[in-house]
């Protein structure tokens, strides 16, 4: 029972168009789960199914071991990509209304809102109308409203859009704090650097099918190519490079360095050993740089989508 959310062979068609095809995804408790995929892959449909906005044609979704039902609405917080608030309503009134829709009673909602507003230093916005606030300010309110009822599962779809770097960091820290407090987070984004930074699990959906999922670290391990980035100080760079190209698969590399040196990536075969490579290179000159090239989430994303 370590998975909070288990989707089993979920399919959804809209008329002739298949939005999701037999997608199975398990989201471990307490994880930050990256739901990735190109535009139109079916991510939003999947998220809407979890939120019971759309019903799947086939397949099942379990939340905390129970089939998804109406009562689970209060256990889920959802920040949609297409989001907004009532423009002509006051911030406080609006936040209270949305909290009550999630099942909080008014007094409790008010108390928690005060707490959050103080944390994010937006307390004096209570009586302002949304149309008087900037986009980033409205996004902050939206974030508070999403997490206010302290749900087990939080779903963020592009949470950082509309935030400046300072506020994006603030929100990122809040999301991680929520995870530390026991919430499970599904995180859908196109910004790979935030995936690197935050996600411990990912799933990749492409053209309605899940094509990859697992722990980010495991996926990186599986996708590593035994490639090393090296820097070598040697008097006759060209001869050494020639020799290297004869022995290994070599590609050019760039990194910051204080030395004037030969820089390149060397891809060892599946059985190649890093130690052997170091020994070999030491014989050719002074080794100044030796790093394993770990595939970035971005590379994995592009590669997997291309190959599928």
């Amino acid at each position: 029972m370590n998975d909070l959310l288990v989707a089993d062979s979920v399919s959804k068609k809209f008329g002739e168009y298949t939005a999701l095809n037999q997608v199975s995804i398990s989201v471990p408790k307490g994880s930050v789960f990256g739901l990735l995929g190109p535009n139109g892959a079916g991510k939003t449909t999947f998220i809407r199914i979890i939120n019971q906005i759309t019903m799947p044609d086939t397949g099942s979704v379990m939340l905390d071991g129970e089939p998804l039902r109406a009562e689970h609405i209060k256990d889920i917080g959802y920040l949609p990509e297409e989001r907004g608030l009532y423009k002509s309503m006051k911030v406080g009134e609006q936040a209270l209304y949305l909290a009550q829709l999630k099942g909080l009673d008014k007094a409790e909602a008010k108390k928690r809102l005060r707490m959050w507003f103080d944390r994010l230093e937006i307390g004096d916005w209570w009586n302002k109308k949304i149309q008087e606030l900037s986009k980033g300010m409205a996004q902050k309110i939206q974030f508070v409203v999403t997490v206010l009822h302290e749900p087990k599962l939080l779903i963020f779809d592009e949470p950082f859009s509309g935030f400046d770097p300072i506020n994006a960091t603030l929100i990122k820290d809040e999301i991680l704090r929520l995870r530390d407090n026991g919430a499970t987070i599904i995180f859908s984004t196109h910004r790979m650097e935030s995936v690197e930074e935050m996600c411990d699990h990912i799933a990749l959906i492409h053209q309605s099918n899940k094509i990859l999922d697992g722990k980010l670290i495991d996926i990186k391990r599986q996708n590593k190519t035994n490639t090393f980035e090296i820097g070598l100080m040697t008097p006759n760079e060209e001869a050494v490079l020639k020799e290297l190209q004869g022995k290994f698969e070599v590609s050019p590399a760039q990194f910051k360095s204080i030395n004037d040196e030969l820089m390149c990536n060397i891809k060892l075969g599946a059985n190649g050993s890093a130690n052997d490579l170091i020994q070999y290179l030491s014989g050719k000159g002074q080794l100044t740089h030796f790093v394993e090239v770990v595939p970035s989430a971005n590379d994995i994303f592009i590669q997997t989508v291309k190959n599928s």
Binding site: N51, Y78, P80, R83, G84, L85, Y86, L98, K102, V145
Partner: peptide
């Protein structure tokens, strides 16, 4: 229409039918 253009609709219907 207002709920659609202000994009609040998806927030609301994740809470109510």
């Amino acid at each position: 229409i207002e709920e659609k253009t202000s994009r609040i609709i998806e927030v609301i219907i994740s809470s109510v039918k």
